[in-house]
């Protein structure tokens, strides 16, 4: 770990402590502890059913944790009396299925929260939306409806929608797994740009190659727990746990 990242981790951007979550009798998260430093990109790997998506969705309380503590810049996300809508503006989220609003064009998909949550004027919100769409390379598609965009373009609009709120952390829930292979690259390029601009990112994804190149840290989860974590070179090159090794050999096909 570089000294830079170490210093940043002293005041974590996102902090998760003792996270538990069950669906019915199935315990999906069995106590997860995790800190994400400022400007850090953390990749979460694991087999399906390992709880990685649930963990991510607990971070902005789309899933309600059973117990545990989540802090954003030291402010509580969990617990009574938290203004959920206020805190969610500070946490951007990108979904596997994009979840763009089909009745609104790309620009309005971005401006809706700016206007209704931030109370921006139409002009202000439009300007901000165009800025965000330009960043993801889709300024020329601002008036198109989602049904007129490719999957990759839709996901980039979804990223713009999250970016425009200027969040302190962004959560990516398998952002490329619903995409045709040839469209994945564009989305990853946008994510790389977002990271370069200094965003703190927590990413659940199966894009191993991207993780190896771009992640600052890789976490391996299995059966509701973090099994091991470290810089990508070590996790991919010399995993310590059998389960990590088994998983990696299965997905990389070696």
């Amino acid at each position: 770990m570089t000294a830079d990242v170490e210093a940043a981790q002293a005041t974590p951007s996102l902090e998760v402590r003792g996270l538990h979550k069950s669906f019915g009798t199935v315990e999906v998260l069995k106590g997860v502890d995790l800190t994400v430093a400022h400007r850090e990109m953390v990749f979460v790997l694991g087999p399906s059913g390992s709880g990685k998506s649930t963990m991510l969705r607990c971070c902005n309380r789309l899933e309600e944790p059973d117990s545990g503590l989540i802090l954003l810049e030291g402010d509580p996300v969990t617990g009574k009396g938290v203004n959920l809508n206020a805190i969610r503006q500070r946490i951007g989220m990108v979904f596997q299925a994009f979840n763009l609003y089909p009745h609104l064009n790309a620009r309005k998909n971005v401006t809706l929260a700016l206007r209704k949550v931030r109370g921006m004027s139409r002009d202000e919100a439009d300007a901000r939306a165009m800025e965000a769409l330009t960043r993801v390379g889709l300024a020329d598609k601002s008036e198109n409806h989602p049904s007129e965009l490719s999957g990759g373009q839709q996901q980039r609009v979804a990223i713009a929608r999250a970016l425009a709120l200027e969040p302190q952390v962004m959560l990516f829930d398998e952002p490329t797994s619903a995409l045709d292979p040839e469209l994945v690259g564009d989305v990853l390029a946008v994510m790389r740009e977002v990271k370069a601009a200094g965003m703190t990112m927590l990413v659940v994804s199966h894009e191993m190659k991207f993780a190896r190149e771009a992640a600052d840290r890789v976490i391996f989860m299995d059966q509701g727990r973090i099994v091991e974590q470290g810089p990508p070179e070590r996790i991919f090159g010399a995993p310590e746990h059998d389960r990590t090794r088994a998983f990696l050999s299965r997905v990389t096909g070696d």
Binding site: L62, N85, N99, A113, R161
Partner: peptide, 12 residues
Amino acid sequence: GQWEAARSTGLG
């Protein structure tokens, strides 16, 4: 997912 996307941007 529509609800989730909306709520994740802070809409009530």
